[in-house]
Write a protein that binds this DNA or RNA. Structure first.
Lengths: 117, 117
DNA sequence: TGTCATGTGTCATATATACTATACATATGT
DNA sequence: ACATATGTATAGTATATATGACACATGACA
C-alpha cells in the first residue's frame, strides 16, 4: 500500500517532467502551505494534512480527492454528512457491501442511477 | 433535531424509571467516565465524547451506536474503513443515494443481501 | 437528624492535530 | 562564478479533542 506522501511526490514529479512549475516550493505556494511542510508530507515525516488541504492538493495534482483522502485515512466530510443523516440505513448498506466484489457494487451504482423513484 | 446529550439523558431517565441503577453516577461508572463529565455531556455543556465512549454509552443505554454516533457528528470507524478501502466506488454509490428515498435504499439493501455473487 | 447518594460547577490537563518560521546546504541556469 | 531556486532540518505554536479531580449543594432514606 502506497502511503499518502509517496503518491503526492510521485504525482508531482510526474507532472514536473512536463512543467517546471511543479517544484515542491511552487506547488506548496499554490496549495497555500509552507514548502517545509509539503516536504515533510511527501516524505511521510508528518501525518497527512487536513481534509481541506488534502483536497486542494488533489486538485493541484489532478488526483481524485476521495482517493487521496482515503490514503490520508479519512473520508470526505460530505459523504459523512450523507451517512449521518440516515445512519441506520447507510450503515446497513455499507456493511452489507463490505465483502461484495467491485462489479457487484458498480451494478448497484448503475441501477440506482437509472432507477426512477 | 435532538442533540446528543438530550437523547442520552432522555434514554437514561426512561431506563431509570424501571431500574434505580440508572443514575448518572452509576451509568458513568459502568461506562468508565467521571460523573461530572457525563453530566456535562447530557446537558450539552461539552462536545459529545469520543467514538469509543459513545459506543459504550450506546451499549449501556440500549441505543443504536450508529445513531448515537451520528448525533455526535461522527461516522463509525468500521464504516469509514470499508469506504477507505474502495473510495471511488463507495463515494459514487453514497453520493448517488443522497437524495434517494428511504425505501429505495432499503430495496437496495435487501437486493444486495439476497444477491448471489 | 445524620448519612449517603445525587447532579453539577469550576479548574486543570494530556494528547493530538495542523500547521508556521527560519535557516541552511545543495543544485541549476546564465 | 554567481544569483537564484530547490528540498530539507530544526524548533516552535495555536487550536481542538477528550477527558479527570475535587468540591459543593440538594435530596432521599432510615
Amino acid at each position: 500500500m502506497t502511503h499518502f506522501g509517496g503518491l503526492v511526490r510521485a504525482r508531482r514529479e510526474a507532472l514536473r517532467r512536463g512543467d517546471r512549475s511543479y517544484s515542491l516550493r511552487q506547488v506548496a505556494a499554490r496549495v497555500g502551505i509552507e514548502p517545509a511542510y509539503l516536504s515533510k508530507i511527501e516524505r511521510g515525516d508528518v501525518a497527512p494534512p487536513s481534509e481541506a488541504t488534502t483536497c486542494r492538493l488533489a486538485r493541484e495534482l489532478g488526483e481524485d480527492p476521495d482517493v487521496l483522502l482515503a490514503l490520508a485515512g479519512k473520508v470526505s466530510s460530505d459523504l459523512k454528512e450523507i451517512i449521518r443523516k440516515r445512519p441506520r440505513l447507510f450503515a446497513e448498506l455499507i456493511r452489507q457491501l463490505k465483502e461484495a466484489p467491485d462489479d457487484a457494487i458498480l451494478r448497484v451504482v448503475r441501477e440506482v442511477r437509472d432507477g426512477d423513484w
